[in-house]
Amino acid sequence: MLVKLIEKVGSKIIKLLESIGRIVIFFWTGVMNIFIAPVQFAKIIDHTWFIGSKSIFVIILTGLFTGMVLGLQGYYSLLQFGSEAALGSAVSLTLIRELGPVFTAIMVTARAGSAMAAEIGVMRISEQIDALKTMHINPVRFLFTPRIIASIISFPLLTALFNVVGIIGGFISGSIMLGLNRYVYMDTVIKSIQMQDISGGFYKSFVFAVVVTTTCCYRGFYTHLYSGFGARGVSLSTTNAVVQSCIFIFIFDYIITFFLV
């Protein structure tokens, strides 16, 4: 009984260590290939278009409504203390420091991260990744490296867009709908934002780009090891990729915030 328990625990630990080793090698190979010529310009542009440009609409939509909700909730909360004039400051700082990077990362995970995991997963089960190997093409360089570069370009830009649209959303609900003086709102926005708030938000979006892309590509790449073969294997690896990415976003958000404050 005890021996079986030890065997089971030992086997789990070995599997965990193997997984850690595999993800470290996967990430390292992908990152190192960024610096190996030739630069894969066409693929980077293609993925930047998919991850970045095609996410613009959803980012505008979520950013606008997040800002509007913040404006609405913030206005009535601040009104209780007679501080509704600080609405612009509350909305902008909440967005730039926290909600902008986190919500952007979650939305891009849902839209592009799931697609990455599914696409690479299908390539795995249909032997396309093996085909790359037989053609002496490094599959990690071919599939992961351009995507991580594209994410590093896209995430901060989408975060900036989310923040700007969110601040506009706060303006719409706070000033246009609830009657807060528009100059007061904009003045508090401008005066309260410091450079370190913006850079802190960008550090987060940079880390989220790396974490989300690595998790999603890794899950797709090793679909056969973790989720099995066939359509069910791909769907399972896609679900796992999205769920794990979201968990990692919150964990890393806390860690970065801890060091920034």
Partner: peptide, 13 residues
């Protein structure tokens, strides 16, 4: 070496 796969393994995209 070159390898031709049973299910072709062509890139759909």
């Amino acid at each position: 070496l070159s390898y031709m796969f049973q299910d072709n393994a062509l890139f759909d995209f």
